[in-house]
């Protein structure tokens, strides 16, 4: 059990790192497309790591299944909405950032 618990903690910390880098990217990156890139990392990998870590730590199958369902839902929502934002930004002729 201790191994499961510790690996869960390591996964959660990894997820937090992804969340932090996602926020830093959202603040620092220059245009919509690169910010979308940062956002999806936080959404998909960050939440995935946190959910998997908590699922490892919980010794209840129902809770673990619910955690993974939440991750799946966020995956669907964030990937679809990021795709839609990017494609409609392209349609609106918003220029991607170029190195000056």
């Amino acid at each position: 059990m201790a191994i499961l618990h510790h690996s869960g903690t390591i996964l959660i910390i990894t997820g937090l790192l992804f969340f932090l880098s996602g926020t830093v990217g959202l603040i620092r990156f220059p245009d919509v497309y690169s910010r979308l890139h940062a956002l999806t990392k936080a959404d998909n990998v960050g939440l995935g790591c946190v959910a998997c870590g908590l699922a490892l730590q919980s010794n209840n199958w129902a809770v673990a299944a619910k955690l993974l369902l939440i991750w799946l839902l966020v995956l669907i929502a964030s990937s679809a909405s990021c795709h839609l934002i990017a494609s409609s930004a392209m349609q609106k002729n918003i220029k991607p950032w170029m190195r000056p």
């Binding site: 669907i76 929502a77 679809a80 795709h83 839609l84 494609s87």
Partner: peptide, 8 residues
């Protein structure tokens, strides 16, 4: 409507 939205 994009097919992605319909999928969602």
């Amino acid at each position: 409507i994009s097919p992605v939205q319909m999928g969602v």
